[in-house]
Write a protein that binds this DNA or RNA. Structure first.
Lengths: 252, 252
DNA sequence: AAAATCATATCATATGACAATATCGGTGTC
DNA sequence: GACACCGATATTGTCATATGATATGATTTT
């Protein structure tokens, strides 16, 4: 099973193959602006030497980045860093790399906006399409979030599982594809402040999530949408407060 | 400038490099289920021979597909086709490949649902953040859609430009990333039936789009959201009608 | 001055070899 | 007979080198 940004950030970066290492370093360098948008990055030979890998490996890494829309190669010209609006921001790796520079409030705000657009809709669709099995599964996950023994990490994971389950229950494959975005948001929230800090916070979170399942179970589209909106709004508010406390960006 | 699915589908597939050809054929084969999910696809050597390319090129193509989440390689095991819910459906290529098998009503319905979740929100954000320059730009694009000389192709392109401009004006980079999705939707609609067929249709479309800009210009979030919802609903209805006329899938 | 040509730098492709890794099957022991 | 160990083996991962394709910019020609 592939590790998402959440597990990856917590357990440490995956450094199995030299290919993935190069991809990682180059990707982060581009995202961070070390290689600014529009510029040509060093040639194959040069980069291969810098990373101490063969040109083969370097080129495969470039193809990986190109596939995500970060760079575009042209013969004789070189390989250019593409404009930001061409990057596939829903790519799990790209999201992860964004957080390696530090946590940017604007970025988290943008993610919250997207979640606000997406997840209430997904909840409404789930109210239409969810099977009974899916509903009881979601309910179990929502209840599990209330376990007072949760650490910030385990709560974040439980949170993620729930939201992915809702996306799955919406029966729309695109909703599930937003999963990596949800992960990124939870990573950000998790690193800033966790409701697992106090028992009350945990109970609140769990209750709010249970409410979503109840609405879905009643097949109440509008109710499910509203309940989901509450959850996202709370998460966003938590980010805001935390950012005010720590106006500096937090190192990744 | 990179060609999106719309131009690509209209002008013909891009077959510059042998790399992109291999990526294209393999990608389509995977999406279409020719290589079913969960199965191991043939080894490097084998595939390289089939495509009559070197192993270098084949492997770079594999890295491209892996970067999009379609496959995952494991030493000694082989390269496995990943589960559908791990594919990055917002990737422009993956969307394009979906339409090469034929137009699937469910798929278009899912895209419409996502647009319905996304674009009204983007319009509302644009009502907050759009600059005067962006507003007049959007207005020009909306008006340009009313040109009675439009062919189905040119109308689809104008349509796309408008929706991308709105996404851009939302000042949220994620909204812009949904551009490839919008393209895919327009390709689908365009291939089924075009409002450019009659002058009335063109005027209708243009008027509806102008209304969006008017609401944005008035900084009316709710109004902009509602106006955008109308446009998407109309597009979806057109798909439904066309699908009823032609219940068979249409060859890509 | 404009157009055609050529040199050159960079990416694209090919080939052959070796290394790393994980399965599978055989071997031996209990 | 069951289980643990271990090596043969197949597949991806990495490397080094050579050649082709392509687009730029300087050079030459008209």
């Amino acid at each position: 099973m592939k590790k998402g940004p959440l597990e990856t950030l917590i357990t440490g970066v995956d450094t199995r193959t030299s290919h993935s290492q190069v991809v990682d370093v180059l990707g982060r360098a581009i995202i961070s602006g070390e290689f600014p948008v529009g510029t040509i990055l060093p040639g194959d030979q040069d980069l291969a030497m810098r990373f101490k890998v063969s040109r083969t490996v370097l080129r495969e890494a470039m193809k990986t980045l190109a596939a995500k829309g970060l760079i575009v190669p042209r013969a004789r010209i070189g390989t250019r860093v593409t404009a930001r609006n061409q990057w596939n921001l829903f790519d799990s790796d790209i999201l992860t790399w964004h957080f390696h520079n530090g946590i940017d409030e604007d970025f988290l705000t943008h993610i919250s906006e997207v979640r606000m657009a997406f997840e209430p809709h997904a909840a409404a669709l789930a109210a239409i399409h969810a099977t009974e099995a899916e509903i009881s599964h979601m309910m179990r996950l929502a209840v599990a979030m209330g376990d007072p023994a949760h650490t910030p990490e385990s709560l974040a994971v439980a949170d993620l599982r729930f939201h992915l389950a809702v996306a799955e229950a919406s029966a729309n494959p695109f909703m599930r594809s937003v999963g990596s975005l949800i992960e990124a948001a939870l990573v950000g929230i998790f690193k800033l402040s966790s409701p697992a800090a106090d028992r009350e916070g945990i109970e609140d979170v769990s209750r709010n999530h249970i409410r979503i399942v109840e609405q879905i179970s009643r097949r109440d589209e509008a109710g499910a949408r509203a309940a989901m909106e509450v959850v996202i709004r709370v998460g966003r508010a938590r980010v805001r407060v935390a950012m005010d406390d720590v106006p500096q960006t937090v190192a990744g």
